[in-house]
Nucleic acid binder design. Structure first.
Lengths: 258, 258
DNA sequence: GCAAAAGTGTTTTGCCTACACCCATGT
DNA sequence: ACATGGGTGTAGGCAAAACACTTTTGC
């Protein structure tokens, strides 16, 4: 895809509306493959030969009329084809030099009508099932790709900062709220859930303690269904109890109360 | 103070620099008087007769060149005279209708060169000693006033939302990090600290348990100093242990770990 | 029957909670 | 000596952490 096609794509949906020059959204989309956290990045290799940070977080300017959350959803959709993603805002990044690095200029000049404008970006993160993205390989599939979190060492602009803060945010969030509703399949085993937690914290967890802890939260419903066709004792499937899940999402399950 | 004076005040420090049309900062400044949380609000009564929400959070547009944190500090300083305040970002508010309410238009028209521009605001909060503000009654003292948190029922724009989210944020933050470094005097008694926590959570706390808990965190240094001239057993003064305090600020003291 | 992953229980330790009285000072 | 707020200890329950073996299935 050429740059002009890219630019056109970004504006196609709302030709009558004007882009804000100064406000963008960036999305950190985490996926889980059963083993490892991945992040959905835009692949700009065609245009950015020999640049360490050819991959970038999906993000772009918002429209003047649109809500930030909507903008994040729209931009993510336009760049990756994803729809109906629950995005959560975790910060605003506004260093006046955040898009002034020399190496980032060619891209900006190609993509922005005013490449020198100062842009504050509102950062969002989402957790999705990687399969949701893989199973819908659109024309975007060439542009957006999953990259294992641990393999990401450079990103353009301040995207590496944003990524690191998102990981931090995700970890802190996971300590006080259940996680996985958007990341695990609808039915999943406790061990799959444990692997997710191990991936988020990058750390082995004792399976007896993990199970007890999760079960005691009463946030899962045990199903009458087992794995089939596995060459070992089949695991029982669970799913989230929506009410409990949402009440924990709101209130958290802090222990340090007074 | 007239509106034009107000407008001038807001721009006096950087006449050569241009205001962003679309990005503002708003600050929720909490103060503690030993009993109750207060919030520092701008008093617009002179200009806003008969309007329920004459008081507003201190906030304004940022300059194109300036960092968000700097902008928050500057705006707060210009509107209240406060300096050297530690501000923490807690969210961005970008509903496209957030400043479209009819009752808010007169003020916007008076204060903004482009009152119809869409503005996303980055919200900050700070905790300060109320005495720091009281003891420096500048010309601002008439404009900015402390209002007890519980007495605030309406605010213009989306400021009431912002305020509520800041309270939420403050409470959640207090559960996982020490609070008070910027809110309590340098030396303080455990009971003063307890009253602060009671104010934040709006709830009585058992003093034996509170003391044990705080002491066990090892975030305080006991001083060799007592209250003097009080008609009861003098309390021992404590101060924050900076290293421990900052390490907790970074890491938090979660109990729900794996 | 064996490989592979699922699932289960106990003990120890520390923290949270609830609760009531004595202490040091000024007047 | 009394009023005022400061300061302390203990017992019971619950959750966290550490730790190893048995179960069920496919092949």
């Amino acid at each position: 895809m050429t740059l002009s096609k890219y630019t056109k794509m970004l504006t196609k949906k709302s030709t009558s509306k004007t882009l804000s020059e100064n406000i963008s959204v960036d999305c950190v989309v985490f996926g889980f493959d059963g083993n490892e956290l991945h992040v959905l990045l835009i692949d700009r290799e065609d245009e950015m030969k020999n640049v360490a940070s050819a991959y970038a977080l999906p993000g772009n300017l918002i429209y003047d009329h649109e809500d930030l959350n909507q903008a994040a959803e729209r931009v993510l959709n336009e760049l990756t084809g994803l729809t109906n993603i629950y995005l959560e805002q975790f910060g605003a990044f506004g260093n006046p030099n955040r898009i002034k690095k020399k190496e980032d200029q060619p891209w900006l000049k190609a993509v922005r009508t005013n490449p020198n404008a100062r842009v504050v970006t509102i950062a969002y993160y989402a957790l999705i099932r990687m399969s949701d993205f893989k199973l819908n390989p659109s024309s975007f599939a060439k542009e957006a790709t999953w990259v294992p979190l641990k393999d990401i060492a450079h990103l353009p602009f301040d995207h590496f900062d944003i990524l690191n803060q998102s990981v931090n945010y995700l970890r802190n969030n996971t300590k006080i709220r259940p996680v996985g509703y958007n990341l695990l399949p609808e039915k999943f085993t406790l061990n799959e859930m444990q692997k997710l937690y191990e991936a988020i914290f990058n750390k082995k967890i004792d399976n007896r303690n993990f199970r007890r802890k999760i079960i005691n939260l009463e946030v899962l419903n045990k199903l009458d269904e087992k794995q089939e066709g596995v060459a070992h004792k089949p695991a029982i499937y669970y799913q989230f109890n929506k009410e409990k899940y949402h009440s924990y999402i709101e209130k958290g399950f802090f222990k340090f109360e007074f």
